[in-house]
Amino acid sequence: MIYWLITAAIVLNGWTMLRFWQDKQRAIEGLRRIPESDLLGLALIGGSPGALLARHLFRHKTRKQPFSTYLLLIVMIQVGVGIGLWLPR
């Protein structure tokens, strides 16, 4: 079971990074962009590590507001939930 969860997380974060890269390329070429809601949705369902890494690697959406605030809020909520799940009861 854990193998499938790890594999799913790797695939999801890889897909998230790919979509950020594609959006960056589309921005450079002046083509139709990937909606920010799609990128944030990927982060929300578990792709936030990939989103943060992609922002850093591709220098994309690093100053865009309110996108940056929403992404960081998603990350903080996920970290809080993760800590809550791992704390002993």
Score class of each variant (00 low, 15 high):
I2G: 15
I2S: 11
I2M: 10
I2P: 00
Y3M: 08
Y3W: 11
W4D: 15
W4Q: 15
W4C: 12
I6W: 04
A9F: 07
A9C: 04
I10R: 03
V11H: 00
V11W: 01
V11S: 01
L12T: 07
L12R: 01
N13S: 05
N13L: 02
G14K: 07
G14P: 08
W15F: 12
T16P: 12
T16F: 00
T16E: 08
M17P: 14
M17F: 08
M17W: 07
R19G: 00
W21E: 13
W21H: 14
Q22F: 02
Q22N: 00
D23G: 12
D23I: 09
K24A: 09
K24G: 07
K24P: 11
K24Y: 03
K24I: 12
R26P: 14
R26K: 10
R26F: 09
A27D: 04
A27Y: 04
I28V: 04
E29T: 02
G30Y: 01
L31W: 08
L31K: 14
L31D: 11
R32K: 05
R32G: 08
R32W: 11
R32F: 06
R33S: 03
E36R: 04
L39D: 10
L39N: 07
G41M: 07
A43V: 03
L44P: 05
L44W: 05
G46F: 02
G46R: 02
G46T: 02
S48G: 04
S48V: 06
S48W: 10
S48I: 00
P49L: 09
P49I: 05
L52Q: 12
L52G: 04
L53Y: 10
L53T: 15
R55P: 03
R55A: 05
H56Y: 08
L57N: 09
F58N: 14
F58K: 04
F58I: 08
R59D: 07
R59L: 09
R59W: 06
H60P: 06
H60E: 14
H60N: 14
K61I: 10
K61L: 11
K64H: 07
K64M: 05
P66H: 09
F67E: 01
F67P: 03
F67D: 01
S68F: 02
S68T: 13
T69R: 11
T69M: 12
T69A: 10
Y70I: 14
Y70V: 14
Y70W: 15
Y70T: 13
Y70D: 11
Y70R: 15
Y70F: 14
L73I: 15
L73H: 08
I74R: 06
I74M: 06
I74L: 11
V75E: 10
V75R: 14
V75L: 13
M76V: 13
I77P: 08
V79N: 04
V79R: 05
G80W: 06
G80Y: 10
V81K: 05
I83C: 02
L85P: 03
L85A: 12
W86L: 14
L87N: 00
R89L: 12
